[in-house]
Amino acid sequence: MTLRWIALACAIAACLLLGLAAGEQWINPFAAGDGLEHMILWELRFPRLLTAFAVGGLLALAGAWFQVLLGNPLAEPYVLGVAGSASAGAVTGLMFMPESAWIMSAGAFIGAWIGIVAVMFFSHLGPNRMLLAGVVLAAFWSAVLALLLALLPEQGLFRAFSWMMGDLSHSDLPVPLLLLAWVIALICGLILSRSLDKLLLGERHAEALGVDVKRLRSRLLLLASAVTALAVTAAGTIGFVGLVIPHLMRLLFGSLHRAVLPASAIGGGLLLVLADSAARTIIAPAELPVGILTAIIGVPVFLFLLLRRR
């Protein structure tokens, strides 16, 4: 187990270096001078790398929480329709203020919270019915989004699609805010970790071991939704990280949340840093949507570990 944590620490260092070095122009972080290379490294790539790390970590944390909350290993941060409502909000903003740089983030944030409030109405139902309500709400938001995209002027379509597939190039949220959210979310997760472990045994057994399941579920739903809203606002909808990273970390570090949550917060961050580095390098100077890369990098790694475990 200690070896795995050491390996994770090495992976952090390697990914951060790669994230700094990779791009249209490869730059050695240890040999950058004071001029243009220094500016590219520390004013462009470093903040973007930190944004990617924080967003990836938040998505993975939210995924781990939703999986336990809903008792379903297929759950991910967008399962209850928050991504759909955030996207609808972002596109609505784009429709009315196409010139504004921050309007998609603002629209996404408002849209995400409308989605969260809608889900909250169903939070008193059991996990299965809440999941069903969330899936139906997601379908509703998808329909709204399709309608908005049909009405969106042609010049806004590329920006909308790019955002919807994950876009770290236009994040409007300050990096310190995202990093602070990452730290707070992780601390909250660790405080709840023992109760989350007990919830893995089912609601009844968790209650019998002293967990106030109703209160825990409300807190988890709010926490996971808020974290998802923040991540979507910062970088659009980036799939895969929230679904697979928690499972990957369970394979590597076991099921207890005092290990799964920190490992997911770090692992999700690293995956997004790697994916973003690849996204802005492969067809440079153009960029690929980062959501495509998260799946292309993450799926083979996950499947390999899954097969090896068997």
Binding site: V68, P73, G202, R204, H205, E207, A208, L251, G254, S255
Partner: peptide, 26 residues
């Protein structure tokens, strides 16, 4: 609820769990 756990222990059917929790951890 926490106080009750020091007084009463209940054993019932454990529902299927998909998250890899081991016997030792349980």
């Amino acid at each position: 609820r926490m106080e009750l756990t020091t007084q009463i222990a209940w054993q019932g059917d454990l529902p299927p769990t998909e998250f890899g929790l081991t016997v030792r951890q349980r």
